[in-house]
């Protein structure tokens, strides 16, 4: 269908698309209603991953997958309001590819994979290669987002977002962290602080080095506060923020450093406590 109507705009929960239409920012020639495509509402295991249909709402991610995907669930809880979470989907977030989308940082941190479908078949693209520009993604015109694949957590995950209101707010900046205890890896994702959602590769590498050198994964030992500060600074350095109505570039950088430091401390604390228990 998408192949026959390459300019058709797919709509699922409508939480992004309808705003564009209501505000007269876009007038698509036609729309494809994905909300009525039942296959997109399924999720299940696949080769050690969870394959989650693009139509699964944030509300369901929180209630059905919160224990396996704590980072994504934490991000989902900060999406809009109950009404929005009941309608909005990760698939929609991926389709819009707004740098402020709340789902992107945890997808990046957990190295999720996006599944695109077309009449030619399916292809899978790592989330880290999916965001190609401001509100632009790697999807072809004849493709639809079918699902995303993400590993269930095997270590603590965190998500943290700065907004100037205590609920229902678009991110000034956000940060997601995944500790992969099995592979002893650190994953990061940054939202709303660059033209696209980005990772902080240097920060990941730095922290993996600190953990490896100290044998901290095995010892579940304490982390030197200076390492946390360095990690925060490297996360901030990975951002390329701008000044806009929601905040200044300088503030975004500053806040990312704080969020990175805090979330890592919370996650590592959780990792250490799990061993005691």
């Amino acid at each position: 269908m998408k192949a026959a109507h390459p300019d058709a705009l797919p709509i699922a929960g409508g939480t992004d698309v309808m705003v564009e239409i209501n505000f007269d920012r876009s007038r698509p020639d036609s729309v494809i209603d994905l909300a009525s495509v039942a296959e997109l509402d399924d999720w299940g295991p696949e080769d050690g991953y969870l394959r989650i249909g693009a139509g699964v709402t944030y509300t369901r991610i929180i209630s059905e997958l919160g224990d396996r995907l704590p980072g994504l669930a934490m991000a989902s809880r900060t999406v809009g309001s109950p009404q929005i979470r009941n309608r909005g989907t990760v698939g929609g977030n991926l389709g819009s590819a707004s740098p402020a989308g709340d789902a992107h940082p945890p997808l990046l941190a957990s190295k999720a994979v996006v599944e695109l479908a077309s009449s030619a078949g399916i292809r899978r693209i790592p989330a880290r290669d999916f965001y190609v520009g401001p509100k632009k993604n790697a999807m072809r015109k004849d493709e639809l987002i079918a699902a995303f694949l993400i590993e269930p957590s095997n270590g603590p995950q965190q998500f943290s977002k700065v907004g100037t209101r205590n609920a229902m707010v678009i991110a000034v900046c956000s940060f997601a962290l995944t500790l992969d205890a099995k592979r002893k890896r650190v994953g990061t994702g940054i939202g709303s602080a660059a033209p696209t959602p980005v990772t902080a590769g240097e920060a990941e590498a730095f922290m993996q080095g600190v953990l490896d050198e100290g044998g901290l994964w095995e010892k579940r030992g304490e982390i030197d506060p200076s390492a946390l500060v360095r990690f925060g600074d490297l996360v901030a350095a990975a951002a390329r923020p701008i000044d806009d109505v929601r905040g200044t570039a300088a503030y975004r950088r500053h806040a990312l450093a704080v969020l990175a430091r805090r979330t890592f401390a919370w996650a590592w604390d959780e990792y250490r406590r799990k061993s005691v228990a």
Partner: peptide, 27 residues
């Protein structure tokens, strides 16, 4: 508000609470 930010148009669609302004008529 026509953008799901105020909740004034909250309705149930198939038993789920949503903002009617964000549901396309055809849906």
């Amino acid at each position: 508000c026509e953008q799901g930010e105020c909740g004034s148009c909250s309705v149930y669609v198939d038993g789920t609470l949503v903002c009617a302004c964000l549901v396309l008529g055809g849906q």
